[in-house]
Amino acid sequence: MIQSFFNPEIIVASWPIVRAGLLNTVLLSLLVVPLGLFGGLILALLASVKHPAVRWPLMAWVDFFRAFPPLVLLILLFAGLPFAGLELGGFVCVAIAFFLNTGAYYGEILRAGIDSVPGGQIEAARSTGLSRLQAMTSVVLPQAVRNVLPDLLSNTLEVVKLTALGSVVAVPELLYQARQAQSLTYNPTPIVVAAIIYFLMLWPAVRLLSRLENRAFAGP
């Protein structure tokens, strides 16, 4: 059992490959989380514009990318775009797919956060001469983010887990590298190692999330 699932020799032998994957997963997360947050922020700010010419397309956009499976989106970008003469490579495809998909989720969370800030806050800021954008960035957003911090963190956990999708388009992240190691060694041990690494990486965040959520239930 241990020989096939947690073989020490194979752990040592495959470690450089798995380690490279871990590094790439971290880098990928550091890229796609801010990218998704940025996309979400734009969507959330646009959502405060009540004009129908903004509102309807925005709603369609968010609905579409929340309903569209990210794996399908990714494969479509990776396998479909070359037919349109655009060969982007796995890494860029992952970045675009996450920007679209997770941006829509982050956008909905941030919009809920912005909605949770009383209108009097904007009015007070505007009455002292702050522009709409200044009121948003200095007064509303800090409160909005604080109000939805557990949801933002929860979504971020999902995003980090979803980076494993990159393996489908040959981005050498943790899962992809572990599978490479598995096929080189004819042993599933590297996959087990990858699973443990994912768990160790995300578990502290899960703990933190539970604490934030408990605090939210306990009130201010």
Partner: peptide, 18 residues
């Protein structure tokens, strides 16, 4: 935004930034 600096306003619900 410039004009509003000349007009101070105080609200019933204070509206301080918490």
């Amino acid at each position: 935004n410039h004009a509003r600096q000349r007009i101070g306003m105080v609200f019933q619900s204070f509206n301080l930034y918490p």
